[in-house]
Amino acid sequence: MKILQRYFAVSIAQAVGFVLLAFLALLAFMDLTGELPLVGKNGYGSTQAFLYVLILIPGHVYQVMPIAALIGTIYTMAQFASTSEFTVMRAASMSTAMAAWFLFRIGVVFVIITFIFGELIAPRTAPIAERIKLSARGTTVSSEFRSGMWTKDIVKSEGLSGAATGARFFNVREARPDGRLKDVKLYEFDNSFRLRSITVAAAATYQGSNVWRLLDVTETRFSNSTVLTPGVEANLKNNFIQETSAVATQKSASKDVVSEITPRILTVSSSDPARMSAAELRVYTAHLAENKQETDRFKIAFWKKLIDPMAIFVLMALALPFAYLHTRSGGVSLKIFIGIMIGVSFILVNTLFSHLGLLSTWPALLTAIAPSALYLLLALGALWWVERH
């Protein structure tokens, strides 16, 4: 059986590799087509465009590997059926469970490769590609947003520890590819949601250890002394009334600010969750939860990052019944076309469940695992049918 396992592995690996290269070439061509209108503008040349498209390829490997595994396995199984090899294998005492075990062991390799590209390579290459594009065009990360980039953290009595004394909102007009921030504004509120200070800085650089150094700083502080007014205290327990006359403004060349916000969190906050690693999603979700912000979208993306590569097992199981269909049931090309349709339907259902889960506030794990569970039932049903017929 070791020889048979090796024959399965080599045949499927060759087919999956060919399909994967075809998909990557197609996606790279589409990416390049999308970049061509920008070539020649603001110093963005063809070399930078080709380099940008090339560096995005690892991310595409993660995206298309499950579909490539499905189509490649269907092609191999269809070839086995058309040449009656699978019939000979079954006559040599190979059961359906044994064939499924062969596919599972081969699928483990594909899953590991997918995880490596999705967790280790793509999250590092995607920011490099964006920096190359932004540097070449002379633009910034936040230039697409009218008011800049926004994020929030909790102000604590001892910097990163101690009791929470308020909240702080970061507004960054420009986040440059080198990590330097320009036109920074910090809005700090106390625990009663009263404005405590506004800090405006021309630029900011990260010093490490959660310390930002603000340059050319103008800080406006409000005393927020309590004003007791008959009738108002009964209606407003926290008394949001401020003494607007108690305002102090101070200017300084630089100021260090301790914050939970790091360049990594800033980068993640402006990134597409689909391009982030599970580790980055976990860190950013914890940050949002601590600041009492919406986390459902990132929780779903986190679980999808862990579960989607496992869908390779499900899709390869869907390919196994094609080995039981003889040539009279349709040629190899027809079976490959059916495989492509199954792959496209899986992508559509997977995306649909992501949106439905977000709109209906379903549990993130259930939202991520439901499409794979649905197609696993379909695969088991197909295997039962071919066994019976």
Rank of each mutant, 00 (worst) to 15 (best):
K2L: 12
A9Y: 08
S11Y: 04
Q14R: 14
F18Q: 08
A22Q: 06
M30C: 11
M30F: 14
D31Y: 01
L32V: 08
G40A: 02
K41P: 03
Y52G: 00
I55D: 00
L56E: 00
Q63H: 07
M65H: 08
G72E: 10
F80K: 04
F86W: 07
R90Y: 04
A92Q: 10
A92Y: 03
T96P: 04
R105P: 00
I106N: 06
V109S: 06
V109H: 02
V109D: 01
F110V: 06
T114P: 01
F115Q: 08
G118P: 08
G118Y: 00
E119T: 04
P123N: 07
P127E: 08
S142R: 06
D153H: 09
E158H: 15
G159A: 07
G162H: 15
A164R: 15
G166S: 07
R176L: 15
E188D: 11
F189C: 04
R196P: 00
R196N: 09
A202E: 15
A203T: 13
V211W: 03
L215M: 09
R221M: 05
R221C: 00
R221G: 04
S225C: 01
L228H: 14
L228Q: 14
T229Y: 12
V232G: 04
E233Q: 14
N235H: 12
N239G: 09
Q242D: 05
E243N: 15
T249S: 09
S252F: 08
S252I: 01
K255L: 13
V257P: 07
R282E: 10
R282L: 13
K292H: 14
T295G: 01
T295I: 13
A301I: 06
W303Y: 12
L306E: 06
I312R: 06
M316D: 06
A317I: 13
L320R: 05
S329D: 11
G331L: 09
L334S: 12
I336K: 10
I338N: 03
M341S: 15
F353V: 02
F353K: 01
H355C: 00
G357T: 05
L359M: 12
T367R: 04
A370S: 15
P371W: 02
S372L: 04
W384E: 09
R388A: 10
